[in-house]
Amino acid sequence: MTAALEQPLLQVRGVTKHYGARLGCGDVSFDLWPGEVMGIVGESGSGKSTLLSCLAGHLPPDAGEVRFDVDGSLRDTLQLTEPERRRLHRTDWAFVHQHARDGLRMGVSAGGNVGERLMAIGARNYGEIRSQAADWLNRVEIAAERMDDRPTAFSGGMQQRLQIARNLVTGPRLVFMDEPTGGLDVSVQARLLDLLRGLVREMGLSAIIVTHDLAVVRLLADRLMVMKDGRVVEQGLTDQVLDDPQHGYTQLLVSSVLQV
């Protein structure tokens, strides 16, 4: 066993968030190991997006710790100074939004969108930035001649793939995804899932994927967490949870999937 596998990449302990008197998510704890993909499923309003925002540092939780492996030691990201946290967001972390518009600069060309993270960490050679951007556009199957077009001229699926390229270009170790396939039609979804699965396996990424689509987690996730009313009601290996659901809500969720 290598040293990297002796401790988790991300350790979450007792994360709780209230919206006034109402519970957003309550007392969530789990470990995420390097190279592992974790799925979080649940119905709308179950607190899965709140949890993801708390983990990614977009929302301050009321209680709990989110420890991330920084240079070999686990550090509570909620205690990091703001420059350290923003650096983490530019380098080791990535966030794929449900709506590509939230994660892209719509007034900047596709190449510029991908290059932004490189320039943010100090790349100052135009030729190198451009060739890396071209390489990543190619990997997410965006044609090279679209490189100088703005994302406003792209279809929904292309925008989502562009957002993924923009996030992965700096080689992050942990990717947060909020409904990455939401709002796309099924054939485009299938392509995007294929692409994501390839990239995750190839780069050895760890990822946390929030979705309400069980097919997505079946394809991508190693482990699964089921949430209801802000609480985790069941977690385990994906196939185990989906094929032999124990909790009543999970059983309902699995049986609700339409069979074609």
């Binding site: 703001e82 420059p83 923003r86 600069r105 900047v108 060309s109 190449g111 510029g112 290059g115 932004e116 993270r117 320039m119 943010a120 960490i121 100090g122 100052r124 135009y126 930035i129 451009r130 490189m147 100088d148």
Partner: peptide, 30 residues
Amino acid sequence: LEPRETETRKMHALEEYGLMHVKLYEDIAR
């Protein structure tokens, strides 16, 4: 490039000037 004053102040404070180069990149690309 960044319409929010709160955000640009933070960018100055933390010396996050990558965005300025995005503008120059766009110039060259276009």
